[in-house]
Computed example of a mutant assay.
Amino acid sequence: MDASELFSFIKDFGFPMVLSWFLLVRMENKLASLTEVIGELSCNIAALRGEAPKR
């Protein structure tokens, strides 16, 4: 594989790969916080029902 083919692959696939990585990293942080909030919500619902919270 020569340099022109390598640069062609980077040009064609580099940007989509970097963009996908960036979006996955951002989404991972948001999913982690969403998971935490859902856990807190289930504890609050259990407390309102008078049940012991499940962990």
Score class of each variant (00 low, 15 high):
residue 27 M to P: 00
residue 53 P to D: 04
residue 47 A to P: 04
residue 17 M to C: 12
residue 43 C to I: 13
residue 48 L to V: 02
residue 42 S to D: 08
residue 47 A to R: 15
residue 28 E to F: 14
residue 12 D to I: 02
residue 18 V to P: 03
residue 5 E to K: 09
residue 43 C to D: 15
residue 37 V to E: 14
residue 26 R to F: 02
residue 39 G to K: 14
residue 13 F to D: 09
residue 45 I to D: 02
residue 24 L to N: 09
residue 13 F to I: 01
residue 38 I to C: 02
residue 32 A to E: 12
residue 5 E to H: 08
residue 26 R to G: 08
residue 2 D to I: 03
residue 7 F to N: 14
residue 40 E to H: 12
residue 15 F to E: 10
residue 14 G to L: 05
residue 36 E to M: 05
residue 53 P to Q: 06
residue 39 G to Y: 14
residue 9 F to G: 01
residue 9 F to C: 06
residue 29 N to Y: 09
residue 19 L to W: 04
residue 11 K to R: 13
residue 51 E to K: 15
residue 3 A to W: 08
residue 19 L to G: 03
residue 10 I to N: 01
residue 14 G to Q: 04
residue 27 M to S: 06
residue 42 S to Y: 12
residue 46 A to D: 03
residue 24 L to Y: 14
residue 20 S to P: 01
residue 6 L to P: 04
residue 47 A to T: 07
residue 18 V to A: 14
residue 52 A to Y: 08
residue 2 D to M: 01
residue 14 G to F: 06
residue 49 R to T: 01
residue 52 A to S: 10
residue 36 E to W: 09
residue 41 L to V: 10
residue 8 S to C: 04
residue 46 A to N: 03
residue 23 L to H: 01
residue 10 I to C: 07
residue 6 L to N: 09
residue 45 I to C: 01
residue 38 I to H: 06
residue 28 E to G: 05
residue 47 A to N: 14
residue 22 F to W: 11
residue 50 G to P: 02
residue 36 E to S: 12
residue 50 G to V: 02
residue 21 W to T: 14
residue 52 A to M: 11
residue 13 F to W: 02
residue 39 G to D: 15
residue 50 G to W: 05
residue 43 C to A: 12
residue 13 F to M: 06
residue 29 N to D: 13
residue 51 E to H: 12
residue 40 E to L: 07
residue 55 R to K: 15
residue 35 T to H: 11
residue 1 M to S: 08
residue 44 N to R: 15
residue 48 L to P: 00
residue 42 S to P: 00
residue 15 F to P: 03
residue 30 K to W: 11
residue 30 K to L: 05
residue 31 L to G: 00
residue 54 K to R: 13
residue 37 V to I: 13
residue 24 L to H: 09
residue 11 K to Q: 11
residue 19 L to P: 01
residue 51 E to N: 09
residue 9 F to Y: 07
residue 33 S to G: 07
